[in-house]
C-alpha cells in the first residue's frame, strides 16, 4: 500500500496527494499526519489535491477529519488546488469541509497559513495582510 508523503517546509507540513486514494491509504495518511504534527509541532497543514480527479464521500470526510485532528495540535488546515469537477462532486454529495480553509494554489495556501499563524500569536501589522487574503 502506497503511503502519501508528508513534507515539512518551515513549520508547515505539506501533504501532496499524487495518486487516487484508497480508503486504507486515507486512514494511513490520517495516522501518519497525526504523528508528524505531534512530532514536529507544526503550525499548519497544507493538503495539495491538484492531482486528485476522483473523490467519494469517504475522502470528502477526510478533509474535515484532518482539520479537526490538526486543530487538537493547534495547527490550521488548508486544502489547495481542488479541481472544478471535484468541487462539484463534493457539493453534489452535500459535504461541507467544516473548519477547513481552501485556496486556489499552494502559494496562496501557505500565505493564508502564515497570516493565521501570525494572527494567533497576536503579532502587530497583520490586519492588512489578513484583509488582503479575504480572511475575517
Amino acid at each position: 500500500m502506497d503511503r502519501v508523503p508528508i513534507l515539512q517546509i518551515g513549520d508547515v507540513l505539506l501533504v501532496s496527494i499524487q495518486v487516487d486514494l484508497q480508503d486504507q491509504s486515507v486512514l494511513n495518511l490520517q495516522e501518519d499526519l497525526a504523528e508528524r504534527i505531534s512530532a514536529t509541532g507544526a503550525s499548519g497543514v497544507v493538503i495539495d489535491i491538484s492531482a486528485v480527479e476522483i473523490v467519494d464521500s469517504f475522502i470528502g470526510r477526510m478533509f474535515a477529519t484532518i482539520a479537526s485532528l490538526s486543530q487538537l495540535f493547534d495547527a490550521d488546515t488548508v486544502v489547495v488546488g481542488m479541481r472544478p469537477a471535484v468541487a462539484i462532486t463534493l457539493v453534489e454529495l452535500g459535504l461541507t469541509l467544516g473548519n477547513v480553509r481552501t485556496a486556489l494554489d499552494l502559494d496562496r495556501g501557505i500565505k493564508i497559513l502564515r497570516v493565521l499563524h501570525e494572527r494567533r500569536r497576536g503579532l502587530p501589522g497583520t490586519g492588512h495582510a489578513a484583509s488582503t487574503l479575504g480572511l475575517r
Partner: peptide, 13 residues
C-alpha cells in the same frame, strides 16, 4: 448556491 459553495471549496469567494 451550489455554484457559490463549489467556488468556495476551491478557495475562491
Amino acid at each position: 448556491l451550489k455554484t457559490v459553495v463549489a467556488a468556495r471549496l476551491m478557495g475562491a469567494e
